[in-house]
Design a protein around this nucleic acid. Sequence first.
DNA 1: TTTTCGCCTATTGTATGCAATTCGGCCCCT
DNA 2: AGGGGCCGAATTGCATACAATAGGCGAAAA
Lengths: 228, 228
Amino acid sequence: MTLAAPTAETRSVIWQRKTRAEELRLQLADEIVRGALLPGSALDEITLADRFRVSRTPVREAIRLLVASGLVEVRAHRAALVAQPSADQLAGMFETMAELEALCACYAAERMTSLERRELEDIHDELRIMVQSGDPQRYHELNEAFHDGIYSGAHNAYLADITLSTRARVQPFRRAQFRNLGRLAKSHVEHDRVVLAILRGEQSIAASAMYAHIVTVRDEYEAYSEAH
Amino acid sequence: MTLAAPTAETRSVIWQRKTRAEELRLQLADEIVRGALLPGSALDEITLADRFRVSRTPVREAIRLLVASGLVEVRAHRAALVAQPSADQLAGMFETMAELEALCACYAAERMTSLERRELEDIHDELRIMVQSGDPQRYHELNEAFHDGIYSGAHNAYLADITLSTRARVQPFRRAQFRNLGRLAKSHVEHDRVVLAILRGEQSIAASAMYAHIVTVRDEYEAYSEAH
DNA sequence: TTTTCGCCTATTGTATGCAATTCGGCCCCT
DNA sequence: AGGGGCCGAATTGCATACAATAGGCGAAAA
């Protein structure tokens, strides 16, 4: 979800190698995940084409790519909409995400190299500092890196793909969770259990700890959601 | 919105409601999964446009939809290719599929309605007959219905989606498995264990039985693959 | 006043033309 | 003779024009 460093030089190179449709896809996916484009809002082709200074063709291609990834929904002859799953669908996504993350943690405990384990521990330590300094934005970035590290540590590219994709699809519905500093501290305690189990190679403990962590994340979302 | 009766007239209307790109997507996905389009083969836009009597535009859109679903790969200014995962990637897909199917079976054992359980049993019984009559094509269709029944019985639409999608992506690499009549009988015995556990509501047994079933499917593929 | 029918407009879906880029082949140089 | 660079043909990427469709709006009838 992170874009390349925005130097003028690399941007021009990347721009020439990648197609405009691909750039648009990344940009739109980022805006949806970050919440700049809210679920249910319409993706008007002409407006987007005008905004990005391209024709409708690459805009349409980008939208089609996003459709299959689940972030966008279309009906024939209607504007594309940022996906707005029902409560049931969202519950299923959270449930599945918990299982997938737990599975990644299980495999990670089994398969991570010692280098990967050290890197995970480093990120975890940085997160501990963030809890105290209380920078939600930076915490969020490190948290993503933490989970990404576990995905790749599972040594299963396909599993990592669909887990990350699931996380992205759920992300628009849990943006406000890191405003609460108390949540950060609790989250770190949960991470702690996961890291300990992974470092020790305790697969089932890693899985259940991660599952519990995701369930807590879901509960926090639901509590926040009910209150607003 | 109410759906009209499926007379020839309304069918033509429905046909016009869908877009050509969507039709193409379904057609191409079917050909890829069925093996008419082999992994690694090029999807030439002009050839496809000519074949389906449309312009390149809907062909391109269909390809973009398939790209995001993982059945097709593209590089800028190169022809799209039917996805050809490496041995490692394929192994990861099989491993993930086993976990996802096991998870579906677990939830199905917990959540299936009595009607769903009866329908699953019916399909299972039909499969038993197919094993004896030995119609591989019909067996394949019923087998798909069997697994689909478990997916929907899990009562988690998102999990069902990604499991089905995973199955589709792996399908091109296990087409020849039902030629072997002995395999059909063994497969049915494995199904038997799964069905029994689901009907009894034994979640963990259902999951492990399904996991074992998928692992066997993978092993059969690998044996076949090595021999050819 | 309400409901229904039909036209109109705004937006999406498709076709086509042109630009950009890749790759194969040829030529030249060493 | 072999390797590297350059040019051309073919294919994809993008822009624009046109067609088709769904929903809005208004008028007319109940």
